[in-house]
Design a binder for these strands. Structure first.
Lengths: 342, 342
DNA sequence: ACGTCGTGCTAAATGGATTTAGCACCGACC
DNA sequence: GGTCGGTGCTAAATCCATTTAGCACGACGT
């Protein structure tokens, strides 16, 4: 609607000063000797005209655009991705920055294109996010540009935001132990023997480590460890249906490696006439949307999407932050854990 | 890594020509009289140096930045939002454009801020998206900037992308009718009498209309229409539990107004010992993630998130497109509909 | 009376591209 | 020989804001 944009020259003209003066005043530079009166006139003129600086023009001169590139392999498929984006968006907004969001589907060609598209627009920094945490290839980037890895790592750019999976793994075990579980505990989704040499993701390895260490410290052992490669509901359902044939009588608790497995497992339990948590307790990971829809609600160790997103933007903005930044995984207690049936 | 960016001047120098010539050649202008040899030299120099134009600088001159602002009230909460974004992202990528994503939480202050942040960066157009379709307030925007409403409408900017809910509503009824259902059909989520005067959302009203018309054409009537204000699983569960007391024996099919209600309802059915689809058929709307996790899978009329997102970018890019653009809602057939038990 | 210093402000360069206006040269034609 | 037209290319302006270098003026000191 409005005609065209107001420029700095317009403001200066209205204030009866040069653009130089107007620029200095609006940028709040303290070392100028401009009069109080000049200040007042410029501020007033800018307000009256509704002046907003042209970020592109400014960026040309200053090399800062208050714009960050957010490059992710996947954005829509998982709630995880959108949580990261939302966290990043919120923090960027607080800091007066803006996000250019790009998706690569994990294809190297598109990754390179995305970086270029971002750099073409003079972004101040780039965030690389992956869903399956891993060492990520990062195309070359000019010197001044901050690079932050979100749920990923890279040798050349040692700034990574990761969930504290080790502590999370421990927390899950602690929850079962605290409820009094000592026996009949099933690990659903992973079997260290069978999966030897297979790589899932950096962070999930840490989750396993946390679980293993905590089990040992509590002096506990799993009744069974079921390897499942794809952690989707149907696989949880299938595995659980099968497992119930052998372990039905001794099963007391399930430590599922994510909520989707837990969801499927619970469907199988329900169909078999077992009740959660009276007969079997369940704890799991991620705090997927599903977890809150289950009946009873699923107790789970949350993947802190949004906190990771905000941490990533913080890291771009603050060059001091460096190294591995671990974001705690909150325990979300719902109603799927109870004391074991004797 | 790389030192600093290569500029057009660098390319021109290497080709032994002026920036003017280099610019014209790289932009493929046909009306110049530059020699074939000059063309070759410039193209070669640009390739060797890895030249990429600075979009900000170009935008300053041309008022085009190949950048689109995507302003949404909510991004992470629903899968719907991220589907829209993904669709938009993909199409933008195809067209060599980039998206600045902004979130407003539906607050007018943040909406205004978001528009300004986008305009400050010289975007070519702005997409306004809402989750609950409605007439949306759009802050003033300069003349040349395209504005497209996504799942929303606005008087001043008559370019709207909307799901074809009317047809979708009809499709749901058709599905039940085709399976042979004539009686014992429950409408779950809305009661026209009780909700008279209450406004849910533009598109949902059309969904109702489609359902109503199709029912009439098939000569059918609902056994009951249950008003539920919040379409969440727990509400579906609660309503269904209650309804079963009265209608258990005659109930044959449920037309749920979204998948979350259907999900809750199905939990109630299962607990009551009724089986889907043998005892009761279910059809619903949205194609929420949940729908594929249910056992059996839920047949549903999909909200075409991604298609809507791509349509929005198309509309920004093509000034010819105008008016209400209706995107079809695909029927996703799974396994929740069967012929009625006699 | 003249140099010095502080005060208040501005001209012009800059960043990287596009675009307008026009220059220099060559051959053809009268 | 002068003019006209075409060919091949470039200087300079422009977009908008920031920044460097420095001008003009008055007061002060000696």
């Amino acid at each position: 609607m409005a005609g065209k944009r107001v420029t700095l020259a317009d403001v200066a003209r209205r204030a009866g000063l040069s653009p130089t003066s107007a620029s200095m005043i609006l940028n709040g530079r303290s070392d100028t000797r401009l009069s109080q009166d000049a200040h007042d006139r410029v501020i007033k003129a800018a307000a009256e005209l509704g002046y907003r600086p042209n970020v592109a023009a400014r960026g040309l001169r200053t090399d800062r655009t208050d714009t960050i590139g957010f490059i992710s392999d996947v954005v829509a498929t998982t709630r995880f991705a959108s949580g990261l984006i939302k966290g990043a968006l919120d923090r960027a907004h607080d800091a007066g920055h803006v996000l250019i969001v790009l998706e690569t589907a994990g294809e190297p060609r598109r990754e390179a294109e995305a970086v270029e598209a971002a750099l073409d627009r003079q972004v101040d920094g780039v965030i690389f996010a992956t869903m399956r945490s891993r060492e990520l290839y990062v195309p070359p980037v000019p010197d001044g540009t901050r690079v932050v890895l979100l749920n990923a790592t890279n040798e050349l750019h040692p700034v990574s935001i990761l969930p504290d999976e080790y502590a999370g793994g421990r927390a899950a075990v602690d929850l079962l132990a605290a409820a009094g579980h000592r026996e009949g505990i099933l690990l659903l989704g992973h079997n260290a023997e069978k999966e030897r040499g297979l790589f899932r993701s950096m962070t999930v390895e840490r989750r396993f480590a946390g679980i293993r260490d905590a089990m040992a410290e509590h002096g506990l052992q799993f009744m069974a460890e079921e390897s499942i490669w794809l952690w989707e509901p149907e696989n949880g359902y299938a595995a659980m249906t099968k497992l119930l044939k052998r372990h039905r009588s001794s099963l007391r608790a399930i430590l599922a490696l994510n909520d989707r497995l837990a969801f499927g497992a619970q469907q199988a339990l329900t169909e078999a006439g077992l009740r959660v948590p009276d007969d079997v307790s369940i704890v799991s990971f991620d705090n997927d949307e599903l977890a809150s829809y289950m009946r009873p609600g699923l107790t789970t160790i949350a993947l802190p999407h949004e906190a990771m997103g905000t941490a990533a933007v913080d890291a771009v903005l603050d060059p001091e932050r460096t190294g591995e930044i671990l974001v705690p995984m909150p325990v979300v207690e719902r109603a799927s854990i109870a004391a074991p049936r004797s």
